[in-house]
């Protein structure tokens, strides 16, 4: 359960830092009047949806951290046989990165107010993400073809489950992205698109990050890395 505890400690640190700025040691019964305790008027308060997205990312993060915990516990049992990583995963990783970069471009375009760049950035991101998903399906097919079926071995079970759940999260993001693209084609006002595109970009970067972690675990690099750390420590 190390990875989930690590992840939650990170969240706890962020939470503690945030709480430390909320005056938890103040004595509220001594403060009267609204203004005494009001923060200085903020011109641009963080939009609620942005806060919600970050919390959602924490939830999804703990979801994957738990899976990784389960993976590392199951991996130590003797019947584990590592699965060869299909080469197409590297291409897929490139596609997902490309998708993330395109969205980042769209986000910048929205800030600069360039509608054309914004539209094409969104579309490119969508296409690259779809390419990633189809690539993942091809990877599944290849593995099945090589005999690494579901239920053949826990390592392959985890391969399908982890890639599948990551794909589902991306699919959910694509629905959202689809809505944004539709909106981008209907309006010419980039201002109204800034927030949704921003949220998409954050979500995409996060999923790319999760994918890199998952990939490092499926390839066994994470395990090697941890072993090296252990050797240095001992």
């Amino acid at each position: 359960m190390a990875s989930i505890l690590l992840f939650l400690s990170l969240l706890a640190l962020i939470g503690a830092w945030w709480l430390s700025r909320q005056g938890l040691a103040s004595k509220p019964w001594l403060e009267q009047g609204a203004t005494a305790a009001l923060p200085p008027a903020d011109d641009t308060p963080t939009p609620a949806s942005k806060v919600a997205l970050w919390i959602l990312l924490a939830v999804i993060g703990s979801f994957f951290a738990l899976f990784i915990s389960a993976y590392s516990m199951r991996m130590q049992l003797p019947d584990w046989r590592a699965v060869p990583v299909p080469t197409i995963l590297w291409l897929n990783t490139g596609m997902l990165a490309l998708s993330s970069v395109a969205l980042h471009g769209a986000r910048n375009a929205a800030r600069r107010g360039e509608m054309t760049d914004l539209r094409w950035g969104l579309v490119a991101a969508g296409v690259a993400a779809l390419a990633f998903l189809s690539g993942q399906l091809v990877a599944w097919q290849q593995l099945t073809g090589e005999g690494y079926r579901l239920a053949a071995n826990p390592a392959s079970d985890f391969f399908y489950v982890l890639t599948g759940l990551h794909g589902l999260h991306l699919l959910g993001g694509l629905v959202w992205l689809g809505g944004t693209i539709q909106k981008a084609w209907r309006t010419s006002d980039t201002g109204s698109l800034r927030l949704p595109v921003d949220l998409c970009a954050t979500y995409w970067h996060f999923l790319l990050f999760v994918w890199l972690i998952v990939l490092s675990i499926l390839t066994g690099w994470a395990g090697e890395f941890i072993d090296i750390c252990r050797q240095i420590l001992t």
């Binding site: 909320q22 005056g23 938890l24 103040s26 509220p28 609204a34 203004t35 305790a37 009001l38 308060p45 963080t46 609620a48 806060v51």
Partner: peptide
């Protein structure tokens, strides 16, 4: 987090 009324600090 985001929708508290004016003056509603966490400790209130």
């Amino acid at each position: 987090l985001q929708a508290r009324a004016r003056g509603m600090t966490l400790m209130r």
